[in-house]
């Protein structure tokens, strides 16, 4: 697991974008973990906010993945973004 005190660019970027998109920015949480050389980013949004980060035909989700990949490119990471609707506890 990554250090929680130091926020990576990938995690920070996903957080900034998701907070701008939802009506409940306070409920946005982003978790980052490493799996076999790829970085898994899990985005949690408040109840009923899933549509805001996925968008019509997944266009917003695709945009988030593209920008997460750019941030990863900068840090030499391969990024996978998963969007989840239950708030992250812990």
């Amino acid at each position: 697991m990554s250090a929680q005190d130091q926020k990576s660019a990938v995690r920070a970027v996903v957080e900034v974008l998701a907070r701008a998109l939802t009506d409940r920015p306070g409920e946005v949480q982003v978790r980052e973990s490493q799996h076999k050389g790829t970085t898994l980013i899990e985005l949690f949004v408040g109840p009923g906010e899933l549509g805001r980060v996925i968008g019509k035909q997944g266009r917003t989700a695709a945009a988030l993945r593209t920008l997460a990949a750019s941030a990863g490119e900068k840090e030499g990471k391969t990024v996978t973004l998963e969007i989840r609707d239950s708030p992250y506890k812990g």
């Binding site: 974008l17 998109l21 968008g55 945009a63 988030l64 593209t66 920008l67 490119e73 900068k74």
Partner: peptide, 22 residues
């Protein structure tokens, strides 16, 4: 410049997010 790579795809993505949010 990092946003103009890949034929400007990251810029299009940023444009989309800005459109949706603002």
């Amino acid at each position: 410049e990092i946003l103009a790579r890949h034929r400007g795809e990251p810029l299009k993505a940023l444009q989309h997010v800005v459109d949706m949010a603002y």
